[in-house]
Design a binder for these strands. Structure first.
Length: 600
RNA sequence: UGGGGUGUCGCCAAGUUGGUAAGGCACAAGGUUUUGAUCCUUGCAUUCGUUGGUUCGAGUCCAGCCACCCCAGCCA
């Protein structure tokens, strides 16, 4: 576990621009400035942890990671990296009922795809169950924890309310012997769920409800995905997390704002444990004297408009079939974004742009879109694909010759010559997009209409001579003529304003294109005053287009490869549903469209 | 008259020990352009929730007020 390979970004298929962790923040962007980095700088200056910075990313494996987790991942790994520190991956698996190995595997894959490597082996809170048990015994012996036999309902009543203090449990003064006996037997599986719990003895009158003798162990007769049936009791988050941090010698324990009120408890537990024992149980290679307890620091979680970010809601969307899975391209999950065509570099850049603070905010979806456009503009090869085909016949173009079609060469990128060129046959029969023709052109329209000229991208200028319509009056074919002198040169004496994309009819390949849009039609789906968030699901969030016509060079595209379909947007080959016989493309994001603003 | 937090441009977000408001997104106007894309240039907070106070000087210090968020799981 050298520091050099701890943070290097991977180079997965569409992680195209940045192949090393250094580029995470963007090459020209100044080092991010935020209050957490300031705290760490200060600690470094005062030598608080002997110059050590150790963070951790601690997901509970009860769902898939979403872009909010990416913010935390970038923070934890980023802050460690820029201070020559390390970041652990720890599964906070203290509630086996909701957790599974499937989620563990998915989380690992997502973090790796995002481009981060954790320090050493993967950690599990469940791997500390033995130590956690011993520490509980230590608290009991010190008279700082007791077995409470109140039912959950009774316990709630004793706890008091936000505005009234609590009442001590009648079991609060059990002897150490009795507590040890009971707790031992809890661990031996002698009791049913709910009949006993282990509580920290703190202060039932505390204004902070978390300090009113919080439960630290509960009885749960359930199988654990890591420890099997070994334990009938499981530690609570508040108890396990701080000790896990301490055991891993975490210096800065970064979490979200809702844990603010838990910090006094985090500190209480660690401060009431024997520091020497704690040190012995830890990863520490230093002496007890230089062993410093971790500090919890909270930051605001990520919110983005037009989507939801809570695991509970995302899970509901999956379970109730509103989307096709955790990795549905409309989901804000990392696997969904990946499948949609977002690169990991774009997500890292997005997180940097958003920043870290303590004020709860809602980031505009436009920021995310900008991040992916920014990346793909530089890295995605260009291609042409006609989404809604309208046939064009060039009446003055020669019929197919025996020598085969005329073949044009187009650049794969307007600026990056290194991306090379692609071949594209030109022919008498073509397809253009239906939206690029208007019989009665609106003001400022620069595309094709009867009698006007337009440039076919990378090819000739054509003029529309005649419109063939179906029974309903809808154009089904355009008879046009081409100007043979305009290949690579502008016509003389007149200016052709519009440029439209096209594909040759006979050589184009039929593909399916999935047009994705925001999942919700309301900016804040969480707004309870308007009703359930599921009621504002955007019915147009997925529109599947079949019979789209793509240029033949796309035939070779690999799963997850991203392209810019010129004048349309960025699209990627669906990593699961696309086959060489029937290709499927996902629209990642549109191009910016100033025409849409003018025309509306 | 419970506790803990947060309020700087439409959206994020920097703002060292008080010295006279970074940057990004969005938006607008020009320029380049065989993508109405990209790129380039320019514009975009006399003002920091609010009211007072301290000070030669306050977003930064003090006091009051207002708004919003979190907490009463044997979830995390």
């Amino acid at each position: 576990m050298k520091s050099s390979d701890t943070f290097s970004a991977n180079s997965s298929a569409n992680n195209s621009t940045n192949h090393n962790g250094d580029a995470v923040a963007g090459s020209t962007a100044p080092a991010p400035s935020n209050f957490i980095r300031h705290i760490i700088e200060q600690d470094l200056q005062t030598g608080k942890h002997n110059g050590r910075v150790q963070t951790r990313f601690p997901p509970e494996p009860n769902g898939y990671l979403h872009i909010g987790h990416a913010k935390s991942i970038c923070l934890n790994f980023g802050v460690a990296k820029s201070n020559n520190g390390f970041c652990n991956l720890r599964f906070d698996d203290t509630n086996p009922e909701k957790e599974s190995q499937e989620f563990i595997n998915a989380i690992k894959a997502d973090i790796e795809w995002l481009g981060f490597h954790w320090s050493g082996e993967i950690r599990y809170a469940s791997a500390y169950f033995d130590a956690l048990y011993e520490f509980a015994l230590q608290l009991i012996r010190a008279g700082k924890a007791y077995v409470c036999s109140l039912s959950p309902d009774q316990a709630r009543e004793y706890r008091g309310t936000l505005t009234t203090h609590g009442t001590p449990s009648p079991y609060r003064n059990r002897t150490v012997e009795e507590n040890i006996d009971l707790f031992t037997r809890m661990a031996a599986g002698e009791f049913a769920e709910g009949v006993h719990s282990l509580r920290a003895k703190i202060d039932m009158a505390s204004p902070n409800i978390n300090m009113r003798d919080p439960v630290i162990y509960r009885i749960r007769h359930v199988h654990h995905h890591q420890t099997g049936d070994k334990w009938p009791i499981y530690p609570m988050y508040d108890y396990a997390h701080c000790i896990s941090d301490a055991m891993e010698c975490i210096t800065h324990s970064l979490c979200t704002l809702e844990f603010e009120d838990h910090r006094p408890l985090y500190d209480w537990i660690l401060q009431n444990l024997d520091i020497a024992t704690l040190h012995r149980a830890s990863d520490s290679k230093e002496g007890v004297e230089s062993y410093v307890l971790p500090r919890q620091i909270e930051f605001a979680r990520l919110n983005i408009n037009y989507t939801v970010m809570s695991k509970r809601k995302l899970k509901e969307l999956v379970m109730q079939g509103y989307v096709k899975g955790w990795d549905d391209p409309r989901m804000p999950t990392l696997s969904g974004l990946r499948r949609r065509g977002f690169t990991s570099a774009s997500i890292r850049n997005f997180c940097d742009r958003v920043g870290i603070s303590r004020s709860e905010s809602v980031v505009d979806l436009g920021m995310l879109e900008h991040s992916i456009r920014d990346d793909l503009d530089k890295s995605a090869p260009r291609a042409m694909c006609v989404l809604r085909p309208l046939k064009v016949t060039l009446t003055n173009y020669p019929l197919d010759s025996l020598d085969g079609p005329e073949v044009l060469e187009l650049s794969c990128h307007p600026k990056e010559e290194s991306m090379g060129k692609r071949k594209l046959p030109f022919a008498r029969e073509l397809f253009i997009d239906a939206s690029d023709f208007e019989e009665i052109p609106p003001p400022q329209y620069k595309r094709l209409s009867p009698g006007t000229e337009v440039r076919l991208r990378g090819a000739y200028v054509i003029r529309c001579d005649q419109v063939i319509k179906d029974a309903e009056g809808k154009p089904v074919e355009l008879l046009c003529s081409y100007d043979a002198a305009t290949l690579g040169v502008n016509p003389q004496g007149r200016k052709v304003q519009g440029v439209i994309h096209w594909v040759p009819a006979q050589h184009a390949i039929d593909v399916e294109v999935r047009i994705y849009d925001r999942l919700f039609s309301k900016e804040n789906p969480d707004d309870k005053t308007v009703g359930d968030y599921k009621e504002c699901l955007n019915p147009e969030s997925l529109v599947t287009l079949t019979g789209c016509k793509a240029e033949p060079s796309l035939k070779l595209a690999a799963p997850e490869a991203s392209f810019q379909f010129e004048r349309e947007g960025y699209f990627c080959v669906d990593r699961y549903d696309s086959t060489p016989e029937k290709m499927v493309f996902n629209r990642t994001v549109t191009l910016r469209d100033s025409w849409a603003k003018i025309s509306s």
